[in-house]
C-alpha cells in the first residue's frame, strides 16, 4: 500500500484526524518552544525557571499563565519545553527498543535452533524482573537524568517487541514465497530484509504507536519513585509529580491546587490519546483481513 494512500485514509477517519491534529499541535509547540517560552539562557533551556523560592503552588496569574507548581516552578514553561522532552522520550525509547526487539525477534525465528533458544532465554531473564523495579535499579545506578531514564527504559523495554516479531516471523517463514526464495538460494540478508521484515513490520509498528504515549507515563512513574528527570527539568512526568502532595487541596477546598494536576494531566492524556487513535486507525487500514 502506498504511504500516500495510508495518509489519505488516516485523514478521512474522524478519530485519527483528531489524533493527527493534536500531534501536529504538539509538534508546533515543540518546534516553537523558544518563542513561546523564551529561556533565560539557551544552554539550560530545559531548566524550568523559578518564580521565587516559595514552596506552595500559586494559581495562574499574570506572567504565569498556568500558575506555578511546588517550588515556584513555572508550569507554562515546563509544559512547553516538556513537549520536546515527551517527543524525545517517545521517539528514542520506542525507536531503539523496537529496533532491538526486531533484530532479536527476527534472528531467533529465522535461524531457530540454538540461536533461538539463546535469545529467548535472555529475553526470559530480562522479563523476569518487574519492569519498574529493573528500571529503578538501573537509573539509580546510572544516576538521575533523562538520558539515563531512557537507557533504562530501552534496556528493559525491548522484550515485548522481540516476542511479537518472533511469532510474526515464524508464521511467515513457512509461507511459500519465503521458502521459494530460500530454495532459489537467495542470501539470508536479502530474504530477511526483502521478504520477512517487510511483511512483519506492521504489527510492530502499531504496537510502537501505542507505546509512544505510555512512555511519558512510565517516565513519570520513575519521577514519582524519585529516580526520574532531575528536579526542575522540563518534563511532563515531573510536572505532574510536583502535584503529589497538593492533589487533595487544603484548608477546606479540595480544588485549591487543581492546576498542578489538571494541566500536565491533560497534556499527557491528549498526547497518549492521539497516538492511540492513530495506532487504532493504522491497524484498521493495514490489517489486510479487513479490506
Amino acid at each position: 500500500m502506498e504511504w500516500k494512500e495510508i495518509l489519505t485514509r488516516l485523514i478521512k477517519n474522524k478519530l485519527s484526524l483528531f489524533g493527527l491534529i493534536i500531534i501536529l499541535f504538539f509538534v508546533l509547540v515543540a518546534v516553537f518552544a523558544p518563542y513561546l517560552a523564551p529561556p533565560r539562557s539557551p544552554e539550560d533551556a530545559y531548566e524550568i525557571p523559578r518564580a521565587g523560592w516559595q514552596v506552595e503552588p500559586q494559581p495562574p496569574r499574570e506572567g504565569y499563565l498556568f500558575g506555578t507548581a511546588q517550588g515556584s516552578y513555572d508550569i507554562f514553561y515546563g509544559m512547553v519545553w516538556g513537549t520536546r522532552t515527551a517527543f524525545r522520550i517517545g521517539v528514542i525509547v520506542v525507536g531503539l527498543s523496537s529496533l532491538f526487539g526486531i533484530i532479536i525477534g527476527t534472528l531467533s525465528a529465522y535461524y531457530g535452533g540454538i540461536i533461538d533458544e539463546f535469545f529467548m532465554r535472555i529475553t526470559d531473564v530480562f522479563m523476569s524482573i518487574p519492569f519498574l523495579v529493573a528500571a529503578m535499579v538501573l537509573t539509580t545506578i546510572l544516576g538521575k537524568g533523562l538520558d539515563n531514564v531512557m537507557i533504562a527504559l530501552v534496556t528493559f523495554g525491548w522484550m515485548g517487541t522481540a516476542r511479537l516479531m518472533r511469532s510474526q516471523v515464524l508464521e511467515i517463514k513457512n509461507e511459500e514465497f519465503v521458502q521459494a526464495s530460500i530454495a532459489l538460494g537467495a542470501s539470508d540478508t536479502r530474504i530477511i530484509f526483502k521478504h520477512i521484515i517487510a511483511n512483519c513490520i506492521f504489527p510492530v509498528l502499531i504496537q510502537a504507536f501505542m507505546r509512544m504515549g505510555s512512555m511519558v507515563i512510565t517516565a513519570s512513574a520513575l519521577s514519582f519513585l524519585g529516580v526520574g528527570a532531575p528536579e526542575g527539568y522540563a518534563d511532563w512526568g515531573q510536572m505532574i509529580t510536583f502535584a503529589r502532595d497538593w492533589i487533595l487541596g487544603g484548608q477546606g477546598s479540595a480544588l485549591k491546587y487543581w492546576y498542578t494536576v489538571v494541566i500536565p494531566g491533560t497534556a499527557i492524556m491528549l498526547f497518549s490519546l492521539s497516538w492511540n487513535l492513530i495506532g487504532d486507525a493504522f491497524r484498521d487500514i493495514l490489517d489486510p483481513k479487513l479490506n
Binding site: V55, E56, Q70, D245, W246, L248, G249, G250, Q251, G252
Partner: peptide, 10 residues
C-alpha cells in the same frame, strides 16, 4: 512545614 498550611485551621 511546607504542607502544614493544608491542615492548619481545620
Amino acid at each position: 512545614t511546607q504542607y502544614r498550611s493544608q491542615v492548619e485551621g481545620e
